[in-house]
Design a protein around this nucleic acid. Sequence first.
DNA 1: TAGTCGTCGATTGTCGACAGTTTAGTCTTG
DNA 2: CAAGACTAAACTGTCGACAATCGACGACTA
Lengths: 237, 237
Amino acid sequence: MRTMSPPVGLPALAETDLVGQVARLLTEAIVQGRMPPGSKLVEAGIARELGVSRAPVREAARLLESQGLLVASPRRGFFVRQFAADDIDDIYDLRLCVERHAGVLAARNLTPETRDALRRQIDVLHQTADLDDSARQVEEDYRFHRLICEIAGNRRLLRLFDDLASELRMVIGLIGRLYDDPHEIARTHEPVLAAIEQGHPERIVAHIDHHIGHAWREVGRLVREIPPIAVHVKSPT
Amino acid sequence: MRTMSPPVGLPALAETDLVGQVARLLTEAIVQGRMPPGSKLVEAGIARELGVSRAPVREAARLLESQGLLVASPRRGFFVRQFAADDIDDIYDLRLCVERHAGVLAARNLTPETRDALRRQIDVLHQTADLDDSARQVEEDYRFHRLICEIAGNRRLLRLFDDLASELRMVIGLIGRLYDDPHEIARTHEPVLAAIEQGHPERIVAHIDHHIGHAWREVGRLVREIPPIAVHVKSPT
DNA sequence: TAGTCGTCGATTGTCGACAGTTTAGTCTTG
DNA sequence: CAAGACTAAACTGTCGACAATCGACGACTA
């Protein structure tokens, strides 16, 4: 009798994963603000819109639930997660914790190739700054930070970063525009990279603290300014 | 003026959340090693055993998938996650990152009550050490570390800790017994608490590093000793 | 008129069924 | 005897259906 070989993490050849596709679409809709926080996810509606039955939609919703983008309220359905000011603080606090660590690890693993990748991404940030495309700017910003986590070489850390980023994208999306001066933001990434190249843990942490701390304060301020997050949407509590 | 039904202390009616119950049972079975890593989750089997249909089982499986306890292999089903030595390193690395941060935050938020709670938990650890109940010992150990994360006051950080703990319990469960001298382990928690009471971030980090680093090396060694866990298991019983 | 109760449409939770795929076991062939 | 082909059983992915429940609205009462 042969032992059945369990999955070993190779990229699935055929992307026939319906649940995965639905999950991706839902995630997109949520972080882009098309499904605002507090709004109800009507299973039948989504299913009809996508031309599938409710089963895959519910399974996808469970994935997002475990990821924190949706909250399940028994017998009332799934609702898009709402963020209070506390949540912003929790997220940024954790992000700070994660990125500090990632920065130190990245410095340890840095190769000429990965260093160039980081530099190129800063170039992209500068180029994007001219486009006046806020969403794109935020996206490229995250890509830089994500690169650091990739270089750190801890897959679980990377996944955590992605989860946090989803939530932050969602918050930032509903704030509207974030950057007053995209070029300024692009520049503030440079000392972070410089510190990583130098390799002094203390300097790395200090610069990351400064960089992310700034975003934290900025987002926190905006969230507190616009506390009534809309809306006529039905909330689960 | 609105006449809301005045709260009369009724214990929120029994959780009829079938999916949640199934998820809890599956989690338990996995971390206890009754469903060994690599084994296949046969939906119909689980469903029959629990007296439900496959739909709730699949939804529960999606929750565990997003949590990392199961991996989905399209058209082949769900499998209990397998851990390689790399995974152990990733998990402990992240845990270290998280607990350092939690320790510093906990020191900042420490009150007489929370300090006493930590002390009491160390007492429990010493008492449990006499029982020669390895599983219980591991559980109480985690409870101490979890307390620190609770005191830190970041809900997302706490959830992350719980997720990591699930995975670690699973690994430790299949290693078998971990503690040579439970009393020794209990004692090693004391300097951590002392550092938190003192409140010097550097001391806190240093002691947590020492404490968790020790576990990391120990578990890593054991995992490398028993590398490939051959799986002939087709379905859990 | 404010608050409560009853009714009805809308939605969720769960189930059983079916088609298509994977797996295990057997047989064939070089 | 090993490797490959073939067959049957087992399993997954998805669907549609149905009962239970929720939320909204209007009728009723004090």
